[in-house]
Amino acid sequence: MNKTTFAADKNKLTVTRIFDASIDLVWRTWTEPELLDQWWAPKPWRSVTKSMDFKEGGKRHYAMVGPNEEEHWCITTYNTISRHNDFTGEDAFTDKEGKINKDFPVSEFHNRFVEESGQTVVTIVSEYDSEEHLQQVIDMGMKEGLSMAFDNLDEYIKNQFKLRNELKKNNYPRVTTYLNFPGNTEEAFTFYKSVFKAEFNGKGIQRFGDLPPEADHPPVSESVKKMVLHVELPILGGHVLMATDAPKEMGFTLNQGNNMHICLEPDTREETQRLFDELSRDGNITMPLQDMFFGSFFGECSDKYGINWMFNFKLEN
C-alpha cells in the first residue's frame, strides 16, 4: 500500500501520497461529494457533506461524524481550480450553521495532482498562521487521520467505487448506441467484430438463459433462452455499440426506425429523471423510468421529433 509522507517546514506542512489510479479517477474522488464522503473520514468516523459547490468561490460544508453520532463541522472554500491539475483554498472548523470557530487554526492549502505511469501523485501543501497553529492540528491527530483517510481512498479505488456492474464499473456519464434485432444479434455483432477488429466487453455475449432464476422477470421459452440478452462492442474513439435480441415471442415488433436508440447513462438518478422528463415532453413514453431487475433505473421514450432515447442509470446493490 502506498504510504503517506509528511514534511513540516516552519508553518507549512507538505503531504504526499501516490494512488494507483488515473488522474481523472482520483480527481473525481476529491471533487464530487458523493465520492468524497466515501473515504474522507478516518474509520470509524464518517464524512457527511451538507453542501458542496466545487467551483472558484464555492464551498463544501461537511461534518465528521463519530461512532456515537458526535459531530465536528468544517468548511472548505475553493479559491482557484485548474481541472486535473490543482485547486487551492482554505479549511476551517465551524459550527453546524457554518460559522467559523476561531478557537481552531485556519489553513490555506494547495492540492496538486500529477499523473505518472498510470498512477496519480497527490501533493497537499497546507500553510498556517504560525508554527504553533500547525503544531496544534498535528497534536489533534491530523497526520494519523489523513493517513487513515488516504488508506480508505486506496481501498475505495481497489473496489472500483463499490459499483458491481462488470461492464460499466462506475457511473461516469456516457452516451452509447443501442440496437435491437429480431433474433440475429449474434450474427450481426460477429460481423461488426470482424469489421472493427475489436473484442466484446466483459464476458462477451450474454443470453436470456443466463438470467438467474430468482430474478424478477417473466419466464422465457427454450428458444428465447439462446438469444442475446446483451452484448457490447467498442468500435471507434471509445464509442460502444450495444445490442439485444427483441424476439416476437416476447411481444416485440421491430421496424426500421424503432430498432435503434441513443442510450444515455447519466451519473446520477436525478439527472436521469431530468433528461427523461425533458426529452419525453410532447413525445411518446414507450417505457416509464423504473428500477429494473437487472440493476438499473431504466426507461425509454421518443422525443417530439421522433428520435428514440434510452436511459440507463446503474443502481448500487
Rank of each mutant, 00 (worst) to 15 (best):
K304R: 15
T94M: 08
G66A: 11
T16V: 09
N111W: 07
D91G: 15
S117W: 03
H61C: 06
P212I: 07
E232R: 01
E270C: 01
D245R: 03
E34C: 08
K197N: 15
V122L: 09
N171V: 07
T88Q: 11
D20C: 05
L264F: 15
A8C: 11
R274C: 01
N308S: 08
S130T: 15
S296D: 02
I262L: 14
S47R: 01
S47A: 04
F200D: 05
P44F: 13
S280G: 04
Q206M: 15
V175C: 06
K102M: 11
Y172W: 14
G183T: 01
V125L: 12
V228R: 03
D216P: 02
E199R: 07
R164N: 14
F191L: 05
S223V: 00
T177W: 00
I157D: 06
Q273E: 15
S221K: 02
H230G: 03
D103G: 02
E222Y: 02
W30A: 02
P212K: 09
L163M: 14
T31I: 14
M227L: 15
F6L: 10
N171I: 07
P247L: 12
M310V: 03
K143D: 03
F276M: 01
E186W: 09
F181E: 13
T177E: 00
T190M: 05
W40N: 02
K203V: 04
S82M: 04
F293P: 08
D86P: 00
M242N: 06
C263N: 08
K203L: 04
C263I: 04
D277N: 10
N159W: 02
K203I: 05
Q119T: 10
L179R: 06
E249G: 03
F93H: 14
L254K: 04
E90P: 00
F200N: 06
L35D: 10
P33N: 09
F6Y: 14
V114I: 05
T80M: 03
G58A: 15
A7E: 07
T4V: 15
N159H: 08
L229T: 02
F109H: 02
W73L: 10
N284Q: 11
E265L: 01
P173L: 11
K304M: 10
R60P: 01
F298G: 01
L134W: 01
Q160A: 13
K12I: 09
H110I: 08
P33W: 09
M52P: 00
G57P: 05
G89N: 07
Q160N: 14
Y178F: 14
R17K: 14
S130F: 13
I23K: 00
I18K: 12
L289N: 07
K225D: 00
R207C: 05
F200G: 01
S126E: 08
F252H: 10
G238Y: 12
I100F: 05
V121Y: 00
R28N: 14
S82P: 00
E300R: 04
H230F: 09
I138R: 13
K226V: 00
L236M: 15
K59E: 14
V231F: 06
E187P: 02
H110R: 11
F196L: 10
P44I: 12
